[in-house]
């Protein structure tokens, strides 16, 4: 399995093929459609990430020593954003997720979504995914 760093570089490369924001958004929307969907029964209040204008549910399961993330959102763009994160981070070890850098988001031209006040709460999503990793890290040890 490729490392987080390698997958993130791959995503940056894919996005670099597009010249304008519209194509990038269209691609992001497509990625959203390939998101490993969270089980309907897991769409509970406590799995909603706060700080988003749209609803985002995330679930994390430990499979041997790696974390599998699933998610969903009621907004398509938000779904695309979480899909990008999950593609890079799902199936990775907790320690690697904790250490993962997030500047690739900037490089794929989604910088504006990194603002902490941005209503889609990408920052909240990153925080939540890392929190899961920290929680599972103690179990792996």
């Amino acid at each position: 399995m490729a490392s987080i760093q390698e997958i993130q570089e791959e995503i940056v490369e894919e996005f670099s093929m597009f010249d304008d924001w519209m194509q990038r958004y269209e691609y992001m929307i497509d990625l959203g459609k390939s998101l490993p969907l969270i089980d309907e029964s897991l769409k509970t209040e406590d799995r909603i990430i706060k700080g988003c204008q749209s609803k985002v549910w995330v679930n994390a399961e430990l499979e041997s020593d790696k974390i599998a993330f699933t998610a969903d959102s009621d907004a398509i763009i938000t779904k695309g954003i979480i899909a990008i994160l999950i593609r890079a981070w799902s199936g990775q070890k907790p320690a690697d997720i904790i250490a993962a850098k997030t500047d690739f988001i900037d490089e794929i031209g989604l910088k504006e979504h990194l603002s902490p006040t941005r209503a889609n709460g990408l920052v909240s999503m990153i925080k939540q995914l890392k929190m899961y990793a920290i929680a599972y890290q103690t179990q792996v040890n």
Binding site: W21, M22, Y25, Q53, S54, A75, I76, I77, T78
Partner: peptide
């Protein structure tokens, strides 16, 4: 049934 957030993001662009 489109989410207002999605539409708002695109029209802002």
């Amino acid at each position: 049934s489109l989410h207002p957030y999605d539409i708002g993001t695109i029209v802002d662009k």
